[in-house]
Amino acid sequence: MAFFWKKEQKIISKIEKYLELVIQAKSFFFTTIEELIKTPIEKRKIDSVEKLHQYESLADDIRREIEYDLYNKALLPEIRGEILSIMESMDKIPNRFQSICYQIFLQRIEIPEIIHSSLFHLINENLETVDFIIKATSGFYYKKDIFSLLQEVDKAESLCDHIERDLIHQVFQLDINRADMILLKEVIVQIGLISDKAETVADKLTITIIKRRP
């Protein structure tokens, strides 16, 4: 039986590999941003930020391979556009991990200790949307009922928006100069974009399911 579906199995294996890589990038992102937040500017090292870039680059390579297989091997013409659109939206999540860490490192942004706990709360909530969307995407390929997961993404994204607004409000009450406030606000907004990207993937999954459901 598996002989007949060899090409399809190959694609699904690559998608699983890709999702696994996003999970690894997510874990590594947390470690890296935690290190950047807690380490004084002078002692920060670029190594872990560079490693995060490797994850992002590897994810890009796998996505391109999938794209190549879907188009050059003329696989699934009816749904390949939708599959690739979902993957391209998903690909923006590891991109965001990388850009946030580069932003903090290259712009030498100091994170005041007073907002650490709120900032970690924002990061954790945003990363939770990534967990939900990876589970939902994987479930989608195996035809599982993923609507509850997609609803979780929506709820978590709303919560992230709320935390983001509170945190920006908190930042602009700090006793630091205006330029630092704006830099901090930018970091907060960029972190908040993680859940926005997860929500975009969720929206695309919802439409695809509704369109394709027998």
């Binding site: 579906w5 090409k7 399809e8 699934l76 009816e78 749904i79 989608f140 195996y142 035809k143 027998p214």
Partner: peptide, 21 residues
């Protein structure tokens, strides 16, 4: 047929790519 085969297809333990093929 749509109702019966649709239900059957959804219950088949195969991934979405295999289903389309």
């Amino acid at each position: 047929l749509y109702k019966i085969l649709g239900w059957f297809l959804e219950k088949l333990p195969i991934n979405i790519f295999t289903q389309f093929t």
